[in-house]
């Protein structure tokens, strides 16, 4: 047959055959706006967040962390609401990843305070003994190069002018270098003295991590503020004084709370949980609401992770510590 005797013809035939699937599955969606919708709720990255994102790319964080939560019950419980297409309108490249050697980060923004990230990035094993994440302490020892920032946001079409980029950089610098910055102590611990007045790569990385999923989370929070508090406020701990529950609560505490509130709940990033002072109220119901729904300033919500029962057991353990 002629086709099998003419290499050029065969090459053309092969090109035609491969282009069918290509056209249908990649080209057509590419020109369909519904594939990548744009939402006003999701804002582009600031110049600093973008620099942080580029460091994330440089270090290959996407080789261990994904950034898409799938619509599966347990996945939503672990990470938060599942990912929507409009969240990625500003992402070039996409960073969904293909392996979860570490947890998904699509909902990392606002989950922990900045200070948590400074400490965690510098020494993951110091926080979670069993973690196999590399230490990135050296990011805090490198000054952030912002010389290409304006060019970058221009190429990406974020619509910031040169002065807006400068304003973002200056604004960020004055925030992280201010004495009143809530994470100043944690930042100073990892940043060498001579760099504390400027922006480091670590600062940009933390800014980027705090942006992940934040826009949609804040929109959701605006809508549903306070529900968990009201619902749980009258409840009393069914495990109060139960020895076995206290032991279980201790294990839960170690797995979920220790990294912020300290080995014996004496406080760390999070407040001391053994003293009689409670920022958000000290009744069983208040503490339940804090754990279940999270609190501003970095306390994550644990309701879907732990469930009601285990939150009460954790509270039973905290009460035991408080009695000492």
């Amino acid at each position: 047959m002629k086709l099998y005797e003419n290499p050029v013809l065969l090459a053309v035939a092969a090109a035609v055959v491969i282009s069918v699937g290509t056209l249908v599955t990649t080209f057509i969606p590419l020109f369909h706006p519904s594939t990548q919708p744009v939402s006003p709720l999701v804002k582009p990255y600031t110049a600093i967040e973008l620099e942080g994102r580029d460091i994330y790319i440089r270090e290959g964080c996407n080789n261990c962390h994904t950034q898409t939560v799938r619509p599966l019950r347990t996945e939503v419980a672990r990470y938060g609401d599942y990912s929507k297409p409009e969240e990625f309108a500003w992402d070039r490249p996409f960073l969904w990843g293909s392996r979860r050697t570490g947890p998904d980060l699509a909902r990392a923004g606002g989950k922990y305070p900045d200070s948590w990230h400074y400490r965690h990035m510098a020494n993951p094993q110091g926080m979670f003994e069993k973690s196999n994440m590399p230490s990135y302490a050296w990011l805090a020892k490198r000054r952030l190069d912002t010389s290409a920032s304006f060019r970058k946001v221009t190429v990406l079409g974020y619509g910031y002018g040169a002065d807006e980029v400068q304003r973002q950089i200056d604004g960020f610098r004055s925030t992280v270098t201010a004495a009143s910055y809530p994470s100043a102590a944690a930042r100073a611990r990892v940043t060498p003295e001579d760099l504390r007045g400027g922006i480091t790569e670590m600062d940009a990385m933390v800014a980027y991590l705090q942006k992940l999923g934040r826009d949609l989370k804040e929109a959701a929070r605006r809508e549903s503020a306070g529900v968990r508090t009201a619902a749980a406020a009258e409840a009393r701990n069914p495990y109060a004084g139960d020895k076995k529950a206290e032991e279980e609560g201790e294990d839960l505490y170690k797995a979920n709370c220790r990294s912020c509130h300290g080995k014996k709940a004496e406080g760390g990033f999070g407040p001391d949980l053994t003293d009689p002072q409670w920022k958000f109220g000290g009744t069983d119901g208040d503490i339940f609401a804090s754990i279940a729904g999270g609190r501003p300033g970095g306390m994550p919500a644990f309701e879907s992770m732990l469930g009601k029962d285990r939150i009460w057991k954790t509270i039973a353990y905290l009460r035991k510590l408080g009695r000492r």
């Binding site: 590419l30 990548q36 990625f88 996409f94 290409a148 190429v155």
Partner: peptide, 28 residues
């Protein structure tokens, strides 16, 4: 097709496709 990109400088470029499309082209 997968490597079409907008260069920033010699060592840095951004994908020609955004978000979901980038993912779709990448795994194609």
């Amino acid at each position: 097709l997968n490597n079409l990109a907008m260069p920033v400088n010699l060592l840095k470029s951004y994908s020609a496709y955004a978000g979901v499309n980038d993912a779709n082209v990448q795994w194609w």
